[in-house]
Computed example of a mutant assay.
Amino acid sequence: MSVTAVRYFVGDQTVPALPDLDRGLAYGDGLFETVRAHQGRMHWWPAHWQRLQRGAAMLRITLPDERIVLAEATRLLDGGNVVLKLVVTRGSGGRGYSPVQACVPNWTLSTHPLPPSPAAGLSLRWCDTRLALQPALAGIKHCNRLEQVLARGEWDDPAIDEGLVCSSEGDVVSATAANVFILRQGAWSTPQVDRCGVAGVCRAWALKALPAREARLAVTDVEAADAVFLCNGVRGILPVARLGARTWQPHLQVVALQHRLAAEHPAFATEVS
């Protein structure tokens, strides 16, 4: 995803570049959000900011003033249909892990082109990379994404759209960059993210819209499902057509969910027929 515009900040001040000794660069000591904008408006901004606040509380990171962030983001979006990325780090500090020296946050705003419209049905694979259990980081979008980098690096086949990853204990967690939902015996469920994984903004929406339950899911639960879809806040609801040798036909409930999302979030209105 290429960058179309980028701005850097320290606290409330604009700066020409990230400061030296930024802890996000040195240690991944920070958080990020990617927000889909439609005609310059970010429909799910409150949900993204709330998750950022949860992450900041867990990591004890000071956030910049939301009013300033929103004003700068709106100026950068300039009415466009793009993806906005916000990165907030603890700030700058000396060498070493101690966070005590850093108190003024560094943050970056950048805009990126929208991803391609989703295919009629995604083709998935299972990833060998496992996600470590760490409840202290579970649910939030912290800047250490090395497990996802390793998982996504497992394939370069353009016919494979995404990979599903499990925890170190073998339960299904998510895709590399999306949450996963399955339909079995008439009920929808999605993996719990209390030990690892990200609590996605679109996931939260789908949990209420379906409704669905959170549960520990095994590989066999996914492979035996009647329907599967992925979701995230940038790409919306993504039906799954294949996982290895297992295939699914389009499911009426998934199509209905796509239409409901399009009705509630204008950015996705052009991606349903």
Rank of each mutant, 00 (worst) to 15 (best):
A269C: 06
W45H: 14
T89E: 05
W45K: 13
L70A: 14
V272R: 09
R90L: 00
A120P: 08
P99E: 07
R54A: 10
R203G: 01
L164I: 14
D22Q: 01
G30R: 10
V272M: 06
P118W: 05
G200K: 00
E72Y: 11
A56W: 08
A245P: 05
N179C: 06
L124Y: 03
R184S: 15
S167L: 14
V15Y: 04
R130H: 12
R54Y: 08
D161V: 04
T247C: 08
P64E: 03
L77E: 07
A73T: 07
V3D: 05
L31T: 06
P19M: 01
R125S: 09
V255R: 14
H48G: 04
G236I: 06
L86E: 09
A256H: 11
T270G: 08
V15S: 00
D157F: 05
M42R: 08
P113F: 10
A209P: 08
S117A: 15
V149N: 09
G200P: 00
S123G: 08
A256I: 04
R216L: 15
K141R: 05
R246D: 01
L70P: 04
H265G: 03
L261I: 03
S123C: 14
H48A: 06
V173T: 10
A204H: 06
P211K: 05
E72P: 02
W155S: 04
F181R: 02
T108Y: 03
V228L: 12
R235E: 13
Q39L: 10
L70V: 13
A56H: 04
V172L: 15
F32H: 02
V234A: 09
V255C: 09
M1I: 07
H112Y: 04
A5Y: 10
E223A: 13
V198L: 01
V228Y: 09
A47C: 07
S92Y: 03
S110T: 12
D65P: 02
P116W: 07
G30W: 11
E223W: 11
S273Y: 12
P46H: 08
V193T: 03
P16M: 09
R36F: 00
G233I: 00
P19W: 01
V222L: 15
I61G: 10
V165G: 11
A71K: 11
S167V: 13
A262R: 11
C143P: 03
A256W: 07
Y97Q: 11
L257E: 03
V172G: 03
L183G: 03
L25P: 00
V165L: 13
Q185M: 09
L84Y: 01
W107K: 09
D29I: 04
G244E: 02
D65A: 08
L59F: 13
H112F: 01
A178P: 01
E271F: 08
M58D: 12
I182F: 02
F32I: 02
P266K: 10
A57M: 14
F229H: 04
